[in-house]
């Protein structure tokens, strides 16, 4: 089965696991059990178990250094690339073990896209940045299709109007906020099922932030999104589910409304009211 076929298969699965607002039930997209991550001897994440529903936005909040990025990176096995990182526990996507030997990280990362904490466009043209993923996965049959994918992705990321006439300029020549939208466009160009976003709006002005939040809301129709954010307001605005991390542990997890209005844990209460963090 080629990557493209798997993606196709994945897409059909997704249609069945859509959130049905009427019935009020979620289908679990990502489920983890006891995920523990060590960097060398130092433990950065201890025993995180969580179930993330499909076609929703889940936000991870928590003080700096509490392991949000680490957890996010475990989901698409980006921690494999860090030499001294060791991940244990189980991570299931659509019931499939991610850390299984048979799972090709290439296919996994095509299904689970990622937007990194720091915008990292390729030092290539804007067009190349977006087209790279579809090209290596063979998602476009010809140049026209590729052009279409690039345009749609850039439009979705709210960047098209700004770069339409300079697609052949280096992606690194964009402003920080533009770069952030470019890497979002790059992530969604591969048409993943799950998109992991590590502080996607950290470098954006309020207008661009609003646009990204709008995008996140749109994407929710077809994708499962997990975003890390330091803005309580943003978490409240865009996410349906919220998880609060503290010192490498998942402290509290539930529907966003509940977390913000009626936190059960004192630490959560303190954090969202700004008493620490």
């Amino acid at each position: 089965m080629t990557a493209y076929e798997k993606l196709q298969a994945g897409a059909s699965v997704r249609q069945e696991t859509l959130y049905h607002p009427v019935e009020g039930s979620y289908t679990t997209k990502v489920a983890t059990k006891n995920v523990t991550v060590h960097y060398g001897d130092k433990s950065a994440l201890n025993g995180v178990s969580i179930e993330i529903p499909a076609c929703t936005v889940t936000s991870f909040i928590g003080p700096s250094g509490c392991g949000k990025s680490t957890f996010l990176r475990s989901i698409n096995r980006m921690n494999d690339t860090i030499d001294n990182a060791r991940v244990s526990g189980s991570i299931l996507i659509d019931g499939e073990e991610v850390n299984d030997r048979n799972v090709d990280p290439v296919v996994l990362r095509a299904r689970v896209g990622m937007v990194f904490q720091k915008p990292n466009p390729f030092p290539k043209t804007i067009y190349e940045n977006v087209a790279y993923g579809p090209r290596i996965h063979g998602l476009a049959a010809d140049k026209d299709q590729l052009d279409a994918i690039v345009e749609t992705s850039l439009r979705k990321a709210g960047l098209w109007d700004e770069v339409a006439d300079r697609l052949d300029q280096p992606g690194t020549s964009l402003s920080g906020g533009q770069q952030q939208r470019l890497v979002i466009a790059r992530a969604i160009a591969v048409n993943p099922e799950v998109i992991l976003m590590d502080e996607p709006c950290s470098a954006l002005d309020p207008i661009a932030t609003a646009r990204i939040e709008e995008l996140i809301d749109e994407l929710r129709e077809n994708y499962t999104l997990i975003i890390v954010t330091h803005s309580m307001a943003q978490a409240a605005r865009v996410s349906q589910m919220t998880a609060f991390f503290h010192l490498g542990s998942l402290v509290e997890y539930g529907p966003t409304e509940e977390i913000f209005t009626n936190p059960r844990d004192q630490r959560t209460q303190d954090y969202i009211t700004g008493r620490f963090g």
């Binding site: 690339t81 290439v106 990622m114 990194f116 990292n120 390729f122 030092p123 290596i136 996965h137 790059r186």
Partner: peptide
């Protein structure tokens, strides 16, 4: 070559060889 370039390539689903030959090596 900054590791973020490798991460970016791997993040969109490039294999390690692709990440190296498409992005790291030209830089």
């Amino acid at each position: 070559v900054p590791p973020s370039i490798r991460e970016a390539a791997l993040g969109v689903g490039a294999s390690r060889t692709q990440a190296v030959f498409h992005h790291v090596l030209p830089l």
